[in-house]
């Protein structure tokens, strides 16, 4: 299985661990990631305004490049990249005006009309590898660990476009945790915002939001939390005093598959 891989900017600097463990675990599970050449930053946020075209071109170019590789779907690990790329691709399907304007910008480059696709690494683990198979590949099961999955917003919403999982009662990360031999912790705030980019302009708000998320996880008895989003990880670690560790899901996966130290 070969897929186009879009790491995104954060995985090249602050979230190198996410990038490294994603690649290593994928390779071990027989998934080949071919990094899209000369990709640019997705912008971090999808602007829903209909007259925002130019800000989406970097995503369009990544999607266009990705369609040449594997089955044409682009794999992301970062939740934000997933959200932006997938919403961008969806716009081609529902908005002919967007398609027209984008391709005007792309003059001189190959046309693109939404024929590619976007898939999150978690979806690959669920649908291509399969959690039953993943369970068999686990060499160091996380037995006894109580792990709280933190979805945040970007993986789930808007669900009509992303169709990643049930937006109110998602299961993919909990199933993932079970496959690794640990016990998932269900808590109400797992799909509520961590404060996101507001940490830059209103840090107190980000602190309150992150604290609420972590308190909810702690109350339900979590040993640690996992996430797919570097910004969530930042807010949940730097913007709270709550000591529960937060890790990338790929790091935990690497551990369970016996990669790395310990």
């Amino acid at each position: 299985m070969k897929f186009a891989y879009y790491p995104g900017c954060t995985l090249k600097n602050r979230a190198k661990a996410l990038d490294r463990t994603a690649r290593e675990t994928a390779a071990l599970l027989g998934i080949e990631f071919e990094e899209i050449p000369e990709w640019q930053c997705c912008g971090g946020a999808y602007t829903s305004a209909k007259d925002e075209i130019a800000t989406k071109l970097a995503s369009v170019r990544a999607l266009a490049a990705g369609r040449q590789i594997g089955d044409g779907r682009v794999v992301t690990v970062c939740s934000a990249c997933y959200n932006v790329l997938k919403q961008t691709n969806h716009e081609f399907a529902v908005n002919p005006d967007f398609d027209f304007k984008v391709n005007n910008y792309l003059k001189g480059e190959p046309e693109y009309h939404g024929e590619g696709g976007v898939v999150h690494y978690l979806e690959l683990l669920r649908d291509e590898v399969g959690f039953d198979e993943l369970k068999k590949r686990v060499t160091r099961p996380l037995t006894g660990k109580k792990i709280a999955a933190y979805y945040g917003c970007l993986l789930l919403r808007p669900s009509s476009v992303l169709a990643f999982d049930d937006p109110e009662n998602p299961a993919v990360m909990e199933d993932f945790i079970r496959a690794l031999g640990a016990e998932p912790v269900l808590y109400s705030m797992r799909n509520e915002c961590c404060g996101g980019y507001l940490t830059l302009t209103d840090r107190e708000t980000a602190k309150r939001r992150s604290a609420a998320v972590k308190e909810s996880a702690r109350e339900m008895g979590a040993d640690y939390m996992i996430t797919a989003c570097p910004l969530c990880l930042y807010n949940l670690t730097k913007n709270t005093d709550e000591p529960i560790p937060v890790r990338y899901f790929t790091e935990v996966l690497a551990d369970a598959l016996g990669l790395g130290g310990e």
């Binding site: 109400s188 509520e192 909810s216 109350e219 339900m220 008895g221």
Partner: peptide, 12 residues
């Protein structure tokens, strides 16, 4: 907007 089950068995 949301009903949140809590550890003490109540609903927020």
């Amino acid at each position: 907007g949301k009903v949140m089950p809590r550890a003490d068995g109540t609903l927020d």
